[in-house]
Amino acid sequence: MRRPAIVIVTFKRQGLLAGLLESILGLTVAPWRVVVVDNENSHETARIVGEFSGRARALWGDTTDDLDAEGGADRVVYDPMGENTGGSGGFSEGVRRAHELGAEWFWVMDDDVAVEPDGLETLARWSEEAQAVMGLRRDFDDGHFFWQHRFWPRLAIYNPLSRDGWRPGERYKLCNALCFEGGFFSREVVDQIGLPDARFFIYLDDALYGYLASKVTPVYYVPDYVLSRRREVANQAVGSVRQLNSTSDMTRYYITRNRGYLARYFMLHGDYSAPGFALGTLLTFAKELCRILIVDRSHLVSGMRRLVAGHCEARRILHDPTWEPMPPLR
């Protein structure tokens, strides 16, 4: 595996970011680059990244034997943004910057995780047979984190019937989604499908990116833990492995609004169904109502207002004659 870049997006969580960077220093395989996109443009974040850069140089040295496209050798790249572009904008910028530098692989993650010591080494093995890989994650309590690895384009929702267990001898599952909390993909994929779509701001941008990746290459979901989540989130267990996590009213807006962007991409690939999309919207409202009533008990009125506002914006996006998809890079 040549030139693996870790792309991190951070915003006002310096303590968590410091923990993630500390875990990266424990990797058994050194990353070629670590690109930190700072949506806050904070002096404190710059200081933390600068300190990490010094420790990384002392541990691994510069990349003088493999210069980037600009002729640089710094292993750590700090990329402050002029405004908060959300996770979507941050990952779009981070992948763009790493791609511009010459990265061949991209391991993307938020600031509230920690990598497993052999995480990059494990992904490197999978890179020998797959162009896009999603590994397992541990939850903040060190238990297994359930991830729905299949998406239903016709309904524009995650498949609620996705199974979590692994059969004996099952090396991987094919999926049509990714998560930007540990997703791993090649330069070839980025070249063919373009950068992550910054217009999502937050939510569903990674599901879409995995969907687009699955159109050009098999996307593997593998039974190897590569990182763990480090931020505790209020939740309610649903069955033996699933859980319903708390969320904010802001996120609720993007949960329904970004369905409009999904629909536009699904139309391009012949996977859009108007009746299915309407049913998926109804199911989305039902799920979010359950989340409000069961987990976020004090947000009924404000939460429903944000869901409706997002839905109205999704309808506008669905009929916007000026909309264009993200272009491929080649």
Rank of each mutant, 00 (worst) to 15 (best):
R138K: 15
R96W: 11
D65S: 15
A130W: 10
W105G: 01
W126I: 03
G71V: 02
E129A: 14
W147K: 11
R125D: 10
R57E: 14
D142R: 14
H149G: 15
E83Q: 01
G94P: 06
G102L: 04
E70D: 14
G72F: 03
I157E: 08
V108I: 10
R96I: 01
E116W: 09
A114F: 06
E129V: 10
P160M: 02
W152S: 15
F52K: 11
A58D: 10
G54Y: 06
G50T: 01
E129H: 14
W126A: 06
D66M: 03
D141L: 06
G89S: 06
G54C: 07
S162P: 00
D141T: 11
P153I: 06
R154I: 00
E104L: 04
S92Q: 04
W105Q: 00
S127C: 01
A56Y: 05
D142L: 12
R137W: 10
E100Q: 12
G82I: 01
R75V: 07
A73Q: 10
A58Q: 08
A69C: 08
L120Q: 06
N159G: 07
A73G: 08
P117M: 02
T85G: 06
A98S: 12
G89H: 07
D142Q: 13
T122P: 00
W60I: 05
G94D: 03
E121N: 00
A130S: 14
G87E: 06
R154L: 06
L136S: 05
E121M: 01
E100A: 15
F106G: 01
A56S: 14
F151H: 13
V49Y: 13
G54N: 11
W152E: 11
A114T: 12
E129G: 10
V77S: 07
I157Y: 02
E100W: 10
G54H: 08
W105S: 00
S162G: 14
G50N: 05
D74I: 00
S53Y: 02
S127F: 00
A56Q: 03
V77P: 03
D110R: 02
D79H: 12
S127E: 01
A98H: 09
A58V: 02
F146H: 15
M134G: 15
Y158Q: 09
T85P: 00
D112C: 07
A114D: 05
G89M: 01
V95G: 10
D110S: 09
M81A: 11
F140I: 02
R137K: 15
Y78D: 05
V95Y: 11
A156M: 06
D139W: 15
Q148V: 00
G61P: 01
G89W: 03
R55M: 09
R55Y: 03
D142I: 02
R163A: 09
Y158G: 09
H99C: 07
V113E: 09
V76E: 02
G82S: 04
G94L: 03
N84E: 05
G54M: 05
G119V: 06
